[in-house]
Simulated assay, not measured.
Amino acid sequence: MPFPRSWLPRIRSIVAAVEDWPAEHLDREAIAQVFALKRRATLSLMKEIGPIRLRTGRWILPREKLIAFLQAQAKETEVELARKERFTQSLLAADASLLRRPSILLAPRTLSSEQREAYAVGLPESVTLELGSPNQLVVEFATIEELAERLLATGIALNNRFSLYQDLFAPQSQAAHDEDQAEREDAEWLRNWRPD
């Protein structure tokens, strides 16, 4: 199992330390010191980068090779941090856009379909609920990251307003269920009915 990259948050200071390193090569002890890693994690990192074995049996990493590796890692880290920031912002926007109308909780069964659609706002951008038979959730996205962000934000919006959405979409199916139950009871009564 690979060791977690606990040093990624400190990558800029590590790059600076490696660039200022007095020797052209770093051995295991030097890498452990710079990265603040234990022996096994240091060896795993060295193996990933591609060490050079000296005649003495020691393993070293050329400083330039290590700097190139760290710069690539820094770019990946920046991309990941930017993605996490966009994700956080979309969650905050989804939460801020939630409607907090108490009146809908008082009489949800009296809403028209247009009112139901109006109250379905509060979902993330490019996510819509369409009333029908069956109801549909439509998510528009360009990348898999956008899909994941919008689905998670939709889940949070639905969770925060669960009773509202339950009331908006359940009455039609509940009414149909009640009608079916009444018809079954009527049929049973008629089967068992005997004139006096």
Rank of each mutant, 00 (worst) to 15 (best):
V127K: 07
A82E: 14
A68F: 07
I49K: 05
S103Q: 14
F69W: 12
L158K: 07
E145H: 15
R161S: 15
E78R: 14
S97G: 07
R101W: 03
G50F: 11
R58V: 08
M46W: 12
R63P: 01
K75N: 05
K65C: 05
A82D: 14
L147F: 12
L54C: 06
A118L: 15
L129T: 01
I52H: 03
K47C: 05
I60Q: 06
E80Y: 13
T88S: 14
N135S: 11
R55D: 14
S44K: 10
R101A: 14
E80H: 15
L152M: 06
L152G: 02
E85C: 07
R63C: 12
S163G: 02
L129S: 03
R83K: 14
S133E: 08
G57V: 11
Q71I: 03
R53S: 12
V121T: 12
L111W: 01
L111S: 03
S112F: 06
A107F: 10
A96D: 09
T143R: 13
L111H: 03
L92D: 13
V121D: 09
I104G: 01
E117K: 14
E130H: 10
I52P: 00
L66E: 04
L81G: 02
L81W: 04
L129V: 12
F141N: 09
A93H: 07
L99S: 03
L147T: 04
E130S: 02
S113P: 04
V79C: 08
T88I: 14
V79S: 02
E80W: 11
F141E: 08
T56D: 06
R40T: 08
E85F: 05
Q73V: 04
Q71F: 02
E125L: 11
T154F: 10
